[in-house]
């Protein structure tokens, strides 16, 4: 199933800038990489309480994001899901495996790692962007789902 979306260069650029500000603040204040994978993994399997508490606070802050947008704009951010529940569950499990073995996701490798010009992050980002593109092409244009 395909749900058409409109091109939103300005809000997407502004949203990206906020993501960058959060990444710079976490590094400048606490010396940590703003990666969703690392933050979530540290909440699930914490090394210590102090290590758990700041990550849990980041996650709670993230979850408050859409509510803050609702409070300011009067509208909940759009979440349109063009895939089945089984694809969400299967895809979610695969993502969990992949980001743990690969050591990061779009935020950790794609933003923070690439901004440091880390060779591993540049390679990881290239690999997952190409893999995602191929997967979407196969699902939509080969399988026609």
């Amino acid at each position: 199933m395909i749900i058409e979306t409109t091109f939103t260069p300005l809000t997407s650029l502004a949203g990206g800038a906020l993501i960058g500000i959060a990444a710079v603040m976490l590094m400048g204040l606490m010396g940590r990489i703003m990666g969703a994978t690392g933050v979530l993994a540290g909440v699930i399997a914490p090394a210590s309480f102090s290590d758990w508490s700041w990550r849990a606070a980041v996650v709670v802050g993230m979850i408050s994001g859409p509510l803050a947008v609702l409070a300011i704009s009067g509208e909940m951010p759009a979440v349109a899901v063009p895939v089945s529940t089984s694809m969400l569950a299967f895809g979610g499990f695969i993502v969990g495996l992949g980001v743990t073995f690969g050591g990061g996701c779009t935020s950790g490798h794609g933003v923070c790692g690439m901004a440091r010009l880390s060779p591993r992050s540049i390679v990881a980002t290239g690999v997952f962007m190409v893999a995602t593109g191929i997967t979407v092409f196969v699902i939509r244009h080969v399988l026609g789902a």
Partner: peptide
Amino acid sequence: GSALFGVGWGI
């Protein structure tokens, strides 16, 4: 891992 992540993200 990154390739696997991409496949899951695409699904």
